[in-house]
Each structure stands twice: as C-alpha cells, then as structure tokens.
Design a protein around this nucleic acid. Sequence first.
DNA 1: GGCATAAACGGACTATAGTCCACCTAATCC
DNA 2: GGATTAGGTGGACTATAGTCCGTTTATGCC
Lengths: 190, 190
Amino acid sequence: MSPPRERADAARNRAAVLEAAAVLFRERGVEAVSMDAVAAAAGVGKGTLFRRFGDKAGLATALLDEQERDLQEAILFGPAPLGPGPPGTKVTSQERLRAFVEAYLDHLLGHLDLVRVSETAAPGARYRIGAYRFWHRHVALLLAGRADPVADAHLLLAALAAEHVAAVRVELGDERLRGSLRGLVDALTS
Amino acid sequence: MSPPRERADAARNRAAVLEAAAVLFRERGVEAVSMDAVAAAAGVGKGTLFRRFGDKAGLATALLDEQERDLQEAILFGPAPLGPGPPGTKVTSQERLRAFVEAYLDHLLGHLDLVRVSETAAPGARYRIGAYRFWHRHVALLLAGRADPVADAHLLLAALAAEHVAAVRVELGDERLRGSLRGLVDALTS
DNA sequence: GGCATAAACGGACTATAGTCCACCTAATCC
DNA sequence: GGATTAGGTGGACTATAGTCCGTTTATGCC
C-alpha cells in the first residue's frame, strides 16, 4: 500500500488558501471576511475551499494548527514547568498546571478571534477538534489527585473557552482574568 | 407623559409568534426551525418577527423569560436554601450556592436546546442578556469570601454555559457533570 | 365620525454559508 | 506516449439570516 500522496494541484491550492486567509484575516479581522472572499483571493472556487476545510471553523483550525503544535510540543517534551523537563526533573502537578494555564492563555489571547471562530462556527465544534482532546488529556493527567479528573479537566477548560475569555476580558481586563484562573487552579490542586 | 401602551395589533402578533415558535420548537427541535417558518406559522411577516425579537437568540430568550423569572423569584424571595428564606433564617453561602447550581442545572437541562440557541446565536450574546447578569450578581454575592468574587462568579458560570454542558453531558452523563460542579462549588467556598 | 400621526406591518431584497455535480487533470501503468 | 482513473476543481444553486422601506392601521384628539 503506497501512501496516496496529495496531488500537486491540491497542495498548491491548499497553500494558496491558507496564505490568502491569513492575509485577509489580518487585514480585515476574522469575522469580517467571507468564505467567498477567501476563495476569490486564493484564486480558487468555493467548492474547493469547502471540500478541503469543511467550513469556516475548519479553516481557522487549520491556520491555528502550526502554533498549537508548538505549544503541544513544549507540553510533551519541553522544559519544566510547562513540559516534564529532562528525566529526573522534580516538578509538581500544580506547577505544571499553572504553567499550562499561563501558556494557553498567552496563546489564546494572541489569536483570540481565530480561536473563537474555530470554536463557535458549528455547535459543539470546540469539543470535537483534536486540540481540545489534547488539552483535556493533559489537564486530566495533572488533576490525577481529584475524584474525577476527566470531569474536572472539562471544567477548567470551560473557563478557557474563547467565547468566555473574550467576554470576561472586556469586563475585567487580562490581569483579573489571569488571577481568577490561577485561583481556580489552586482550588483544584489544593 | 402617559406611558405609550403597546398597540393591540402588536400585542396580538407578539403572542402569536411566541405561541407558534413554542409549538414548532417542540415539534421539530429548535435548530431545525427557520425564522421564515416561525413567521409563516404565526401568520406574520418576517419584518415583524425580526423587528420584535431582533434575531433567533432574542426569540429564544423571550421564550425562556417566563421560566427564568420563576427561578429568579425563588432565588430572591423563596425558601432556603435556594432563596434566603424568611427573616432570621440561617443558611450558609455554600449551601445557597449549591442549591443555585442544582436549580440552574435543572432549568438548563430542561431547556438545553433553547438556552443554547439563546446563548450562541450571536457572538457574546450570552453575556449581554439580562439573565446572565442576574445569575452573575447572585453568584458573586455568594462568593463574597473570595479574593475576586466578580471574576470567580464568571468562572463558575463558564462551567454552566449551555454549549459546555451540552458537550460534557454527552461524554460523562448528567451525574458526573453534577458531581464535578458540586466539586467546583466546594473548591470555591472552602 | 373624521383626521393626524406615530407605530407597526410584511414581503421583496441582500448577503453569506454551505451543497452539488458535470467536467478536468495529475499520477500511474502498460 | 497514450489510456485509465481516482481525486480535485469551480461555479451555479439552495437555504437561511437579517435589512429596508413603502404601505397599512391603531389610537388619541377635535
């Protein structure tokens, strides 16, 4: 079974779409850009755009993919406290969880509109994409001491939903937002 | 300044729309009903429907209004632990918060699709509607012991967002969902 | 009752997401 | 290099949310 490679025209168009979308989103804001506009700017038909990315959330997810990979890498293999550090490193779950929340918030606040679209375009979209599963698994592992780490991990991630963070940020500002999340981590790992 | 009363035709149409919407939503599910269908069933033009309710979220909010009023009444004036009870009643903030979360979950799970639409139709819709403000104020008062009750109240309500509850419920079931929320309340009021 | 007016009405209109399918082409095999 | 074909392409099409504005009507006043 030779792995069926991606066809050259497909690869070209995928790159063109991502490039065009990145530019348009930066110039006009994610919300204000229609899928028609992205297709036109990429020199591609609507059908191609949707076949490849499914919907606007899929396009946003694809654009976020690279940055999220970096963060995921750092969590799995990077230095403590975000990552596990080299073998023998001493770091508590609480420290790692705090570091995760900080890092995730940095990531989120840096791409808030994009994440928001990727999470809210379709109902339940957030919970189906691979990234959520990754964050959830990581947090659940760090909450191993709790009665129901899986449920509690969802709870913590609810407070990190783009929609929620966007709304609360406007009212309270970044600092109080960060503070309350630190408080939550502490409350869950005390 | 005599208060300008609602015109008779307006009142009639408002009632017709709410009635028609309630029936259609029950029969076909909230998601599957278009605004056109609601307007047609109510014997009303699209313009009238949108003028009055703004958008689909507004319509859902109007439908929820009555039930939410009951809950709000019970919180403000009803018997303990959900309400304050008669003067002199002894009830802790933790007890009242637990009761609120239980009662709100009952309400939410009973109208999940409707609440979901009311919260997610427009970006940030959830945080602007009056009901959210009410729940937030109530929770913040009960969290008076915390360093930042306002921020922490948003945190707790994030875990009660319809989108979140709908997704987690499917994975964990109602019991574990309730359990994790009880755990959060305890963690925030310890 | 007739009139003035502000409010409400409703359907045509626009914009956008997302689907569908007839056609095209890159890769493969001989 | 020509035939084969899986997969890709793109634009016409549908469905729906939401807007606009000319027309209608309830209401208060004379």
